[in-house]
Design a protein around this nucleic acid. Structure first.
Lengths: 139, 139
DNA sequence: CTAACTTTGCAATAGCATTGCATCACAATT
DNA sequence: AATTGTGATGCAATGCTATTGCAAAGTTAG
């Protein structure tokens, strides 16, 4: 089981240190995107900056993507398998729940094609939808 | 001409003070979304916090909307006429140019309907497209 | 004119992101 | 096994933006 995590790191060219195994393990247990703070609290006692840099490394290597959900604090979530180093999260939608304040990836909800004005060229897209999530929605 | 600006403030139930007239005038001259910093530099010598609160007031009253373009710093731009107090910017797309680092409103580019997973309810949407803008695009 | 309310300006704070540097772990090479 | 180099970690410190508290100034209504 640790083997899987280790393998996942190696496949992205990330040296599997103890810290990184822990962080990745923790990330894999989440079903929402989390902030650096959440990570710090969720892990055992560990250095905030190291966690920060770990996330950054993960992001550079295409293991994690970050989300600006409009709250002002950056959230992080694991990439789906298809991501490579340079194209994360371009396609799927993120959802911020106004009720529980959680941020979700909606990996199956893709951003449709948008036709831009003349001479604008698109390289990345980022769509955040705010509303009420399935768990907070009555009925 | 100052009359127009004054009228625009009044029509949104904002008391037209000297400061506010200046800020609105400045905003009307912009064709990109600007940060608080830009505003501070662009105006004569004035208090940063007052400018901050002026923008906030404008936003509450539906005159201005803010954009999180992914750079980490909030940008502000005038709303189109159709905005009312509660529904700004929900519909149009924002564009961030990776080259000139400017953020634009694309008022004529609307966000298409997205079908969310079961039991997710949408209240707001925010789409930022990054790429190269018309002015930076060769040819 | 005076009282009530709003706006403005200054000071101070909070919070997140980010960098510098020194130490430590590890891996490779001799 | 010792040495050297590279990357990872931890601590300290900083920067920047957003945000609040409070007092002074300005505005409006009675």
């Amino acid at each position: 089981m640790t083997k899987d995590i280790e393998q996942r790191l190696k496949s992205k060219n990330i040296k599997p240190t103890a810290m990184r195994l822990l962080v990745l393990d923790f990330l894999m247990q989440q079903n929402t995107a989390i902030s650096l703070n959440d990570l710090e609290k969720g892990m055992g006692p560990s250095d905030r900056i190291t966690l920060y840099r770990t996330l950054k490394t993960f992001e550079e290597k295409g293991l994690v993507h970050h989300i600006e959900d409009g709250t002002g604090t950056t959230k992080y979530a694991l990439c789906m398998e298809e991501c490579d180093d340079h194209h994360h999260h371009d396609l799927h939608v993120h959802f911020y729940c106004n009720n529980c304040k959680e941020t979700f990836c909606l990996p199956n909800t893709k951003i449709p094609q948008i036709s831009l004005p003349e001479k604008f060229r698109s390289e990345e897209m980022n769509l955040v939808i705010k509303g009420v999530c399935d768990r907070c929605n009555p009925g």
